[in-house]
Protein backbone atom coordinates (compact mmCIF):
# COMPACT_ATOMS: atom_id res chain seq x y z
CA UNK A 1 0.00 0.00 0.00
CA UNK A 2 2.83 2.33 0.97
CA UNK A 3 4.74 1.30 -2.12
CA UNK A 4 1.87 2.23 -4.40
CA UNK A 5 1.55 5.58 -2.69
CA UNK A 6 5.23 6.35 -3.05
CA UNK A 7 5.17 5.25 -6.63
CA UNK A 8 2.13 7.36 -7.46
CA UNK A 9 3.67 10.34 -5.75
CA UNK A 10 6.76 9.96 -7.89
CA UNK A 11 4.63 9.72 -10.99
CA UNK A 12 2.79 12.83 -9.88
CA UNK A 13 6.08 14.71 -9.58
CA UNK A 14 7.16 13.38 -12.93
CA UNK A 15 3.95 14.61 -14.52
CA UNK A 16 4.38 18.03 -12.95
CA UNK A 17 7.95 18.24 -14.14
CA UNK A 18 7.28 17.16 -17.72
CA UNK A 19 3.97 18.78 -18.28
CA UNK A 20 4.96 19.96 -21.72
CA UNK A 21 6.76 16.78 -22.69
CA UNK A 22 3.68 15.18 -24.24
CA UNK A 23 1.21 17.84 -25.40
CA UNK A 24 -1.41 15.22 -26.22
CA UNK A 25 -1.72 14.02 -22.64
CA UNK A 26 -2.82 15.93 -19.60
CA UNK A 27 -2.73 13.81 -16.50
CA UNK A 28 -4.29 15.19 -13.33
CA UNK A 29 -4.41 13.66 -9.91
CA UNK A 30 -7.46 13.96 -7.71
CA UNK A 31 -6.97 16.65 -5.07
CA UNK A 32 -7.83 14.42 -2.13
CA UNK A 33 -7.10 10.92 -3.36
CA UNK A 34 -3.86 9.97 -5.05
CA UNK A 35 -5.46 6.71 -6.23
CA UNK A 36 -7.85 8.62 -8.47
CA UNK A 37 -6.55 10.24 -11.60
CA UNK A 38 -8.10 11.90 -14.60
CA UNK A 39 -6.51 12.29 -17.98
CA UNK A 40 -7.36 14.35 -21.00
CA UNK A 41 -6.04 12.98 -24.24
CA UNK A 42 -6.24 14.43 -27.72
CA UNK A 43 -7.56 12.25 -30.48
CA UNK A 44 -4.72 11.28 -32.79
CA UNK A 45 -4.52 13.06 -36.11
CA UNK A 46 -5.61 11.30 -39.30
CA UNK A 47 -8.20 9.37 -37.36
CA UNK A 48 -11.90 10.09 -36.93
CA UNK A 49 -11.06 11.17 -33.39
CA UNK A 50 -8.87 14.04 -34.59
CA UNK A 51 -9.78 17.30 -32.90
CA UNK A 52 -11.59 15.65 -30.02
CA UNK A 53 -10.52 15.72 -26.40
CA UNK A 54 -11.31 12.55 -24.47
CA UNK A 55 -11.47 12.21 -20.75
CA UNK A 56 -10.17 9.11 -19.04
CA UNK A 57 -10.76 8.04 -15.44
CA UNK A 58 -8.04 6.12 -13.65
CA UNK A 59 -8.70 4.06 -10.59
CA UNK A 60 -5.44 2.82 -9.18
CA UNK A 61 -5.50 -0.33 -7.04
CA UNK A 62 -3.55 -0.55 -3.82
CA UNK A 63 -1.39 -3.26 -5.32
CA UNK A 64 -0.27 -0.85 -8.03
CA UNK A 65 2.09 -1.10 -9.83
CA UNK A 66 1.93 -4.86 -9.55
CA UNK A 67 -1.70 -4.63 -10.58
CA UNK A 68 -2.69 -2.47 -13.56
CA UNK A 69 -4.77 0.65 -13.05
CA UNK A 70 -8.43 0.50 -14.07
CA UNK A 71 -9.02 2.92 -16.89
CA UNK A 72 -12.17 3.87 -18.70
CA UNK A 73 -13.38 6.56 -21.03
CA UNK A 74 -15.59 9.18 -19.46
CA UNK A 75 -16.14 10.70 -22.88
CA UNK A 76 -18.32 8.77 -25.29
CA UNK A 77 -16.28 7.24 -28.06
CA UNK A 78 -17.19 5.03 -30.99
CA UNK A 79 -14.34 2.54 -31.05
CA UNK A 80 -14.38 -1.25 -31.39
CA UNK A 81 -12.33 -1.79 -28.23
CA UNK A 82 -14.17 0.65 -25.98
CA UNK A 83 -17.51 -0.19 -24.42
CA UNK A 84 -19.94 2.42 -25.66
CA UNK A 85 -21.89 2.64 -22.43
CA UNK A 86 -19.36 2.08 -19.67
CA UNK A 87 -16.25 3.35 -21.38
CA UNK A 88 -14.42 0.17 -20.48
CA UNK A 89 -11.29 -0.37 -22.54
CA UNK A 90 -10.18 -3.69 -23.94
CA UNK A 91 -6.43 -3.39 -23.99
CA UNK A 92 -3.99 -6.18 -23.22
CA UNK A 93 -1.62 -4.03 -21.23
CA UNK A 94 -4.47 -3.14 -18.89
CA UNK A 95 -5.08 -6.82 -18.28
CA UNK A 96 -2.69 -9.74 -18.62
CA UNK A 97 0.10 -7.93 -20.45
CA UNK A 98 0.49 -5.32 -17.75
CA UNK A 99 4.00 -4.67 -16.53
CA UNK A 100 4.87 -2.83 -13.31
CA UNK A 101 7.36 -0.86 -15.32
CA UNK A 102 4.49 0.95 -17.02
CA UNK A 103 3.23 4.25 -15.71
CA UNK A 104 -0.06 6.10 -15.95
CA UNK A 105 1.54 8.28 -18.57
CA UNK A 106 2.53 5.29 -20.66
CA UNK A 107 -0.98 3.88 -20.30
CA UNK A 108 -2.29 7.12 -21.80
CA UNK A 109 0.11 6.74 -24.69
CA UNK A 110 -1.03 3.17 -25.21
CA UNK A 111 -4.65 4.28 -25.29
CA UNK A 112 -3.85 6.94 -27.89
CA UNK A 113 -2.15 4.23 -29.92
CA UNK A 114 -5.21 2.04 -29.55
CA UNK A 115 -7.41 4.84 -30.85
CA UNK A 116 -5.25 5.06 -33.96
CA UNK A 117 -5.08 1.28 -34.40
CA UNK A 118 -8.36 -0.38 -33.43
CA UNK A 119 -8.47 -4.13 -32.95
CA UNK A 120 -11.84 -5.21 -34.38
CA UNK A 121 -11.29 -8.89 -33.59
CA UNK A 122 -11.76 -8.43 -29.86
CA UNK A 123 -14.57 -5.90 -29.81
CA UNK A 124 -16.32 -4.40 -26.87
CA UNK A 125 -18.37 -2.28 -29.24
CA UNK A 126 -19.82 -4.85 -31.62
CA UNK A 127 -21.36 -2.33 -34.00
CA UNK A 128 -18.08 -0.62 -34.50
CA UNK A 129 -16.22 -3.91 -34.77
CA UNK A 130 -18.63 -5.27 -37.30
CA UNK A 131 -18.30 -2.21 -39.49
CA UNK A 132 -14.55 -2.60 -39.55
CA UNK A 133 -14.61 -6.36 -39.97
CA UNK A 134 -16.97 -6.13 -42.90
CA UNK A 135 -14.63 -3.66 -44.50
CA UNK A 136 -16.91 -0.64 -44.20
CA UNK A 137 -14.14 1.73 -43.29
CA UNK A 138 -16.10 4.69 -44.48
CA UNK A 139 -19.10 3.78 -42.37
CA UNK A 140 -16.93 3.30 -39.31
CA UNK A 141 -15.13 6.58 -39.83
CA UNK A 142 -18.28 8.60 -40.27
CA UNK A 143 -19.86 7.11 -37.16
CA UNK A 144 -16.70 7.65 -35.12
CA UNK A 145 -16.35 11.21 -36.37
CA UNK A 146 -19.95 11.95 -35.58
CA UNK A 147 -19.56 10.79 -31.99
CA UNK A 148 -16.32 12.67 -31.68
CA UNK A 149 -18.11 15.87 -32.74
CA UNK A 150 -21.01 15.16 -30.43
CA UNK A 151 -19.13 14.16 -27.33
CA UNK A 152 -15.47 15.13 -27.54
CA UNK A 153 -15.52 18.57 -29.09
CA UNK A 154 -16.53 21.86 -27.49
CA UNK A 155 -20.13 22.74 -28.27
CA UNK A 156 -20.50 25.55 -30.75
CA UNK A 157 -22.63 28.55 -29.92
Amino acid sequence: MQASRARLFKEYKEVQREKTADPDIQLVCDDSNIFKWTALIKGPSETPYDGGVFQLAFSVPEQYPLQPPQVRFLTKIFHPNVHFKTGEICLDILKNAWSPAWTLQSVCRAIIALMAHPEPDSPLNCDSGNLLRSGDIRGFQSMARMYTRLAAMPKKG
Binding site: M1, N33, T86, G87
Partner: peptide
Protein backbone atom coordinates in the same frame (compact mmCIF):
# COMPACT_ATOMS: atom_id res chain seq x y z
CA UNK B 1 -26.24 5.23 -13.50
CA UNK B 2 -23.92 2.37 -14.19
CA UNK B 3 -20.66 4.29 -14.20
CA UNK B 4 -21.52 6.23 -11.09
CA UNK B 5 -22.42 3.10 -9.20
CA UNK B 6 -19.04 1.57 -10.00
CA UNK B 7 -17.36 4.77 -8.92
CA UNK B 8 -19.03 4.65 -5.55
CA UNK B 9 -18.19 1.05 -4.94
CA UNK B 10 -14.60 1.79 -5.83
CA UNK B 11 -14.24 4.75 -3.60
CA UNK B 12 -15.52 3.16 -0.43
CA UNK B 13 -12.60 0.78 0.19
CA UNK B 14 -10.20 3.53 -0.76
CA UNK B 15 -11.57 5.84 1.88
CA UNK B 16 -11.48 3.17 4.52
CA UNK B 17 -7.83 2.45 3.75
CA UNK B 18 -6.65 5.93 4.57
CA UNK B 19 -6.16 5.57 8.32
CA UNK B 20 -4.04 2.51 7.76
CA UNK B 21 -1.86 4.54 5.49
CA UNK B 22 -1.34 7.01 8.25
CA UNK B 23 -0.19 4.32 10.62
CA UNK B 24 2.22 3.03 8.05
CA UNK B 25 3.64 6.47 7.53
Amino acid sequence: TQPTSTMVSDSIPMASSNPKDFAKK
